[in-house]
Computed example of a mutant assay.
Amino acid sequence: MTKGAVTVRILCLVTVLISLFFLPWWTLFSSHTDWPFPVVLVGTVLFAAAVPAMPVLMVMGHGRRRSDRAARVADTTLGVVWVLFAWSALSVLLRLVLIACGVGDPARSRIVALAVAVVAAALLAWGHREAMRVPRVKRLDVTVPRLGRGLDGTRVVVLADTHYGPIDRAGWSARVAEVVNGLDADVVCHAGDIADGTPDQRRAQAAPLGTMRSRLAKVYVTGNHEYSSEAQGWLDRMAELGWEPLHNRHVVVRRGGDSLVLAGVDDVTAASSGLTGHRANLVGALAGADPDLPVLLVAHQPKYVGTAANAGIDLQISGHTHGGQIWPFNFLVRIDQPVVHGLSRHGERTQLYTSRGTGFWGPPFRIFAPSEITLLTLRSA
């Protein structure tokens, strides 16, 4: 990357950062609210201090130092300011209504400021509870026309984006394992982004994965976050826990005289990670597989579905999007990914199921994007 490109990138990041904090500050403490001076002073100091503090704490928390305390503060700050920014932008509508009703300042601006503060506080409290609870089970039947009758009714449990991280969720992880074991799965898939941190850092949180049961297979692929925290180490750790790491490879499961290929590829970011032998390689993943058999492909990002459709894959399972995690971020996710969540069809044969994710990344909030443990029941035509 050239020096000029780096400069432009830094300027863009600084502009976005300042905008994120400026609009909520203006809505809550300026904009003709005419609050007492001490109120404005305290609010201004808090916002002004947060602007440089957040990126510094992000680097300390998610960079080489991996300080969990710094990450928790930075991630929470990011979630709070995003919610305040979104609802400050939407408050323009309330302001227009109040103008139409003849409400003048400072009453109008104070009503808007208080409304934004109350709505944001309520959503953040609810969103934190949503993020920290054990996900509800989402059940869905998926017809796979090439699936043999012997495999009709195959129960596939999907986990994705557990993101074991700075907040210790070992207890949560154990409860997720209990729910999975209660679903009587034939196949359990983990579609990547297992953790933010190394296998040693997140050993206790990941340990319950070793207690999950399935009749036919437990398979795992890497997500983009593994490539900033020892991807090969996570592949090895999952093998130790009794999972089949589908590192550009496949396994075949059989029942009732019929077979299903379970294939997996590395995340699309793997090629730029510098790790030897790591890249999304569907040809390698399917090498030696009978082309007449149906294929269930696990690939972390939904955007890989174009490659899958060209190869005639029957069903791709992905995560990555978190369903947006904190509304209205889902609209930004849609710019990068073909699907935000749910079942979709691509090409003549290929279906894609995109999970909203089991955990959360960064900000410990989920707002209008509930987490899920997914039970897909495969049906033959």
Rank of each mutant, 00 (worst) to 15 (best):
L216Y: 11
V142W: 10
L343N: 08
T162V: 15
Q232V: 13
D152M: 10
V158E: 06
A50D: 05
L98F: 02
V253E: 04
H341D: 14
G79D: 07
E372W: 02
R169C: 00
A174T: 11
R237V: 08
Q337W: 12
D105W: 05
N224Q: 01
W126F: 13
G127R: 03
T44E: 03
G359K: 10
H62S: 11
W243Y: 06
G357A: 09
V59D: 03
P245Y: 05
V97C: 08
R356G: 09
T33Y: 06
G197S: 08
G323Y: 01
A287N: 14
D290S: 11
K138C: 08
E230Y: 01
V221K: 02
I373H: 05
L241H: 01
A239M: 09
A174N: 05
S91Y: 04
R108V: 06
G233L: 08
A207E: 15
R65H: 12
D200P: 00
R213V: 12
L286A: 00
Y164N: 01
E226T: 02
T358N: 02
D196C: 07
T350P: 13
S67A: 09
A263W: 00
V142Y: 14
A5R: 13
R213C: 10
V268K: 14
F29R: 04
F331W: 15
I326D: 06
V73H: 09
P245I: 10
W35P: 05
V298R: 00
A49R: 08
Q316K: 08
T76C: 11
V59A: 14
W35C: 13
V8W: 14
R202K: 11
A270D: 05
I167Q: 12
V112H: 04
A311T: 01
G288A: 06
